[in-house]
Design a binder for these strands. Sequence first.
DNA 1: GACAGTTCTGTCCGATCGGTCAGTTATCGT
DNA 2: ACGATAACTGACCGATCGGACAGAACTGTC
Lengths: 174, 174
Amino acid sequence: MRADILESALRLFAAHGFRGTSLQDIASDVGCSKASLLYHFTNKDAILSELFAPIGQEFETLLQRLAPLQGEEAARAAVAGVVDMSLRFRRQVKILLLDVDALLDHPELPCVDDVTEALVDAMVGRAPEQEPRVAGWMALLGIFLTTARGVAIPDETMRAELTDGAFRTLGLSS
Amino acid sequence: MRADILESALRLFAAHGFRGTSLQDIASDVGCSKASLLYHFTNKDAILSELFAPIGQEFETLLQRLAPLQGEEAARAAVAGVVDMSLRFRRQVKILLLDVDALLDHPELPCVDDVTEALVDAMVGRAPEQEPRVAGWMALLGIFLTTARGVAIPDETMRAELTDGAFRTLGLSS
DNA sequence: GACAGTTCTGTCCGATCGGTCAGTTATCGT
DNA sequence: ACGATAACTGACCGATCGGACAGAACTGTC
C-alpha cells in the first residue's frame, strides 16, 4: 500500500508539481481515502521526502567517493556520477527541478545548486569534439536552461562565454 | 498601479511559481489590498496572461516571419528568433518553464512544445565546431534539461543519440 | 461646495487545502 | 471463537485560497 501511494504520488508530482497535487488527488489515484495516506505517512512532505530518499543517499555516497580524488580524476568521476544519477532517477529529478519551493522547503534533499557547482568544478578544462547535430541541440537546450530556467552559473563571465559559444555554434553572429 | 502589480507579480511568480504565489502575497508586495488587484484585473489568471502578452505577440510575429522562408534560411531565422526571445523575455520564460500547469491552463500562450518542435526543425543538419569547455557545459545542461526536466524531444531515437553524444563529449563510455 | 467618475478597501462567501481523531473493518495468532 | 493488532475511513477542524460586492476615499469639473 505504501508502494502504491509512492507510485501514484511520484507520477502526480511529476505531472502537476508538488503544490499542484493534493492529498485527495493522490488518494483518488490510489483508490483509498485521504486519511489512509496520512496513516502511512505523517504528512504530505513525508511522501516527497521518501521519494527522494534514494537519490539523497546516492548523492551522499557520490560526494564521499569524490572526496579522496583530485583534479581530472575527480572531475570525471563527478560528471559520471551526476549523469548516472540524473538518468536513473529521471522522474525524481524532474520533480526536483519542477518544484523549486518544495526543494527549498526540504534542505536535506540534494540541492540543485550543489549539483551544478560540482559540475562547474568538474568541467574545467576539456571536452572532446562531438557530432554537429548533437552539439547544436545541446547548445539550444543549454541556452534554454541557463537563461530561461535560471540554473545558477556562478561566474557571470562564464555565462557570457556560454551564450557567445552557443551563438557561434548556431552560426549566428554574437 | 497596474504596472506595479505586474512588476510584483512577475517577480513573485518567478520566485515561487504561479501556484506558490497568492493574491495576498502580491497585494502585500505592492502595498495595497487584495481587492484592489481584482479591480485592475478580472482574476489571478488575467495577471499571468498579461505578463505573457508580449511574448505571445512576439512568437506570433516570428511564426509569420518564418512562414515564407524555407530550408536553412528558415532554420537560421527560427533559431535566431527563439534565442532572441528567450533572452529578452528571460523572466517570463522562466515562469513559463517553471509552471507547467499554468501553461497547460493557458493554451493561448506560446507552448513550450511548439518552440521545441520549431527548434528541432531548425537544427536538422549542421552546427560548426565550438570550444570544448563550452561544449562540455552545454552537454551537461542539455542532459539535465532533456532527461530531468522532461522537455519533449519528439523522436526517441534522437533522444538516445543526444544522450550518447553527451557521454562521448564527456569522454565517458556510453 | 456639489457632483460624478474613478480608484480603492473591509468584509464576506464557498471551495479546497493539509491534517486530526474517534470509531469501524480486516487480519491473524492462539 | 476470540481478543489484539494493524489497516482503514467518515466526519470534522482551522487556515487559506480565489473571488464578489457594497460602500468609502480620492480626484477633477463646474
